[in-house]
C-alpha cells in the first residue's frame, strides 16, 4: 500500500469538525487559564504568606503531575461526587486548571519584573489595591509576558489532543476514527502531525504580531 494522501479527501469535512472542536476547547481553556493564572499569580505575589503558600502548592502539583492523570482524575472523579458534566466541559476544566498553573508562573515573573516605583506612584495617588492590580499591575505583566504566555498556549493546543482519551472527538479523536475507517493510519497521522505543527506555527506567528503591536512604541527596552 503506497503512501497516498488523496484517500483522505472525503474525510476532510469530518476532520475539520474535529479541528473546530479543538479550537473551541483551546479558546475556552485559554480564557480559563488566563483567569486562573492571573488570580493565582496575584495570590502568589500577595503579602499573605498563607495565600502565597497555597498558590505555590497548586502550581507545584499541577505542573508535576501528568496531564492525562489530572484528566482521568476529573473525568472519573467528578461523577463520583455527583457532578455530571460532558467530556467537553471536563476537558476544558482540566486544560484550564493545568494551563492556569503554567500561566500563573509566567504572569508572576511579569509582575515581579514591574518597577516598584510605578506601583508606588499608583499607591501615593490614592488608588486602592484592587484598582492598582487591575489597571497597572495586570496590564503591564500581561504585555511583557505575551511571548511566554504564547508558549503556554501552544502547549495547551498540543495537550488538547489528550482529550481524545476521554471520548471527545476533537481533532485527534476524529483522526482516530478516520484511521480505523480507512485503514490508512500512516497517512492520517502524518497529515495530523503536519496539521498540528502548522497550527502551532500560525499561533506563534500571531503571538509575535500581538507582542509587537502591544509593545511597539509603548514599552521599548529601557535604555
Amino acid at each position: 500500500m503506497p503512501f497516498d494522501v488523496t484517500i483522505l479527501a472525503p474525510h476532510v469535512p469530518f476532520l475539520l469538525k474535529g479541528a473546530l472542536l479543538t479550537a473551541e476547547a483551546c479558546a475556552l481553556a485559554l480564557v480559563g487559564s488566563l483567569i486562573i493564572g492571573l488570580l493565582v499569580a496575584a495570590l502568589r505575589t500577595s503579602s499573605s504568606p498563607l495565600l502565597s503558600r497555597a498558590a505555590f502548592v497548586y502550581v507545584d502539583l499541577f505542573r508535576n503531575i501528568p496531564f492525562i492523570v489530572q484528566l482521568f482524575f476529573f473525568f472519573y472523579g467528578l461523577p463520583e461526587i455527583g457532578i455530571y458534566v460532558d467530556a467537553f466541559t471536563t476537558g476544558v476544566i482540566a486544560l484550564s486548571i493545568a494551563g492556569g498553573a503554567f500561566s500563573s508562573d509566567v504572569i508572576r515573573s511579569g509582575i515581579l519584573a514591574i518597577d516598584t516605583g510605578i506601583i508606588e506612584a499608583a499607591e501615593v495617588s490614592g488608588l486602592s489595591k484592587p484598582v492598582i492590580f487591575r489597571k497597572i499591575v495586570m496590564p503591564i505583566a500581561l504585555r511583557t509576558s505575551i511571548r511566554p504566555l504564547g508558549s503556554v498556549f501552544i502547549n495547551l493546543v498540543l495537550t488538547s489532543s489528550i482529550l481524545s482519551t476521554i471520548t471527545l472527538n476533537e481533532l485527534t479523536g476524529s483522526a482516530k476514527i478516520v484511521a480505523s475507517d480507512t485503514f490508512r493510519p500512516f497517512e492520517v497521522y502524518a497529515v495530523l502531525l503536519i496539521a498540528y505543527a502548522s497550527l502551532t506555527y500560525l499561533v506563534s506567528l500571531a503571538i509575535g504580531v500581538l507582542h509587537r503591536r502591544l509593545n511597539r512604541d509603548r514599552m521599548p527596552e529601557v535604555a
Partner: peptide, 29 residues
C-alpha cells in the same frame, strides 16, 4: 494622600498608558 501628591525622581509614569491616561487615572478612580 488625597491632600498631597508626589512627583518622583525617576518619573514612575505608567508605561502602558498615554500621557493623558497617566494623568486621568487617579482623578477618575
Amino acid at each position: 494622600r488625597k491632600r498631597s501628591a508626589t512627583v518622583f525622581q525617576l518619573f514612575n509614569l505608567y508605561p502602558h498608558m498615554t500621557a493623558v491616561q497617566n494623568i486621568t487615572l487617579a482623578p477618575i478612580q
